[in-house]
Structure formats: structure tokens, C-alpha cells
Design a protein around this nucleic acid. Sequence first.
DNA 1: ACATTGACCTGAGAGC
DNA 2: TGCTCTCAGGTCAATG
Length: 267
Amino acid sequence: MPELPDVEMFKNYVKSTSLLKKIEKVQVNANEMLHGVSSSRLKKTMIGARFQSARRHGKYLFVQMDNGKSIIFHFGMTGFLKYFKKPGEKPSHCRLIIYFSNGYRLAYDCQRKLGLIGMTGDVGGFIAEKGLGPDPCKTDFDFTTFKDAFKRKKGAVKSTLMNQHVIAGIGNIYSDEILFQAEIHPKTIVPMLDDASLKRIYSEMKNNVLPVAIKAGAQHGKFPSSFIIPHRSRDRKCPKCGSEILHKKVSGRTAYFCPRCQVKQTG
DNA sequence: ACATTGACCTGAGAGC
DNA sequence: TGCTCTCAGGTCAATG
């Protein structure tokens, strides 16, 4: 589930539930999900501290503590956070549980263990080290920034949108939505895109798909009917022209698109 | 150097 | 019902 809008929700969730409470206990249930930090050092640093703020870059969430360190969360394909009090409310695949002084707990659940948990004293350094591209929600992410990063690539436009080194935060689902809104076939190779097409991709991503998805709480059921996402599994009909929505593999991922509205540019 | 594929995990759902 | 097979909103190392 977790692409940029989903992680944005997790950020807001942490902010509204877990700030300013003393951390009393930390339980690690999957050591293999810890990256660059041992279980004992994580516990030692967290216990007694409080979460102070949360920020996001792409699909990464950073929760800053009052001791200068930040906990890093990546959610893989199946990760999420759950704040709860009663042990019975514990989600089924808890990989980390943080116990607060008010009796509540914050659980990191990740069924497939494709996410990661880390810790850093330098969020910017971590982002640079990972080689993450710019986050499209940042105010300074303008068309020039987008075009400069994008135009150097030669592969399919969908794969490029999903490349975290180019732009951070877009995954399989939202790349489909952006290309549907921009009316571009997912297999179009980047060198075939003219300036007008690039502008449409940029604008649909920045001004339509991402803000609308975030406003809808990243819940697909609340997306406007003009989005392709709610139609992928439901009626499988294009909301613009009524054609049957097709799906094809693009670089190993399944792309959903409308064969009539999204025509491949071949020069 | 770059784009694409396979491996990494686990579980849900489809098909038999 | 129970088994097998396929697929899943991500990322990295290996491959071409």
C-alpha cells in the first residue's frame, strides 16, 4: 500500500497520536528488519526519549526524537502503523512495538518484511546516501527540477516515474494514475516525450493526483470517479471513454491503462 | 552506464 | 476442504 500519499497519512497519524509522550519500552520482533542499527542500540536510544516531530521524504518516514536522533520507517509493500491501547487491538504482524507512558502503544506492522526500520542523527545525510530524488510535494519541486531529473532517462515513462533516484515517492499505483490523467501510455519511452507531455505529467502529479489523493486520505474508495484507481478492480471501465481497462507488464510491474485514452508516442 | 529481471518475504485468493 | 499456483501499492543485486 505505501506510496507517497500513504506515507503522508502515516506521518499525520504519528503527529496526531504519538508526539511528546515518554517512551518506556521498545519491543523488536524482527531483527532482520533493522538496518544500520542493532536492537540494543535502538532500545537504548529510544527509551526515555519522546517523539518531537515527523517528516517524510518520498516513501520514507522520519520520526524525530528529543535527543536529536530520528527513527526511520520504510513500509515496503505491506507496512503500516497502528496506535492502540488494548493488547487485543494489536495488529497481526507487529515487527516493532513502542510503549508510551500513557499506556498506549505504537506498532509497526509489516506482513512481508519488505520494509525497514532504521535510526539516524542526520536525515538529510540518509536521503543523500540513499540517492533519493526530490520529493514532488516540496514547494521547490518545479517543472525545471522535474525535467532535469527525468529527461536523462531512456526507459519506459512508467519505470522512470517509479525510479526513486529520479523522483521519490511514486510507486506502481500512482504512476498509473499520473499517466492516465496525463493521457500517456505507460510504455512510452522517455526520449519520445515532447515538452507538452512532460508538462502534463508534471502538472498532473504535482497539482492533481498527489494533492487529491492526500486530501482523500489515500483511501481509494474516496477518490474521485475521474481517477482510474477506483476502476481498476471495480468495473474495469475507463472513466473518460468507457473502454475496457487493460493491464500489461512494464519492467516487471503490472500497469493498468486505457488503450484508447493513453496512446503510445512513437515519434 | 543504464534498463530490466529475479530474489527477497509472507499471505490471500483463484482454480482444481 | 485442501492443495497448488499466482499475485501483491517495494527495492536491491545481478544480468544483459
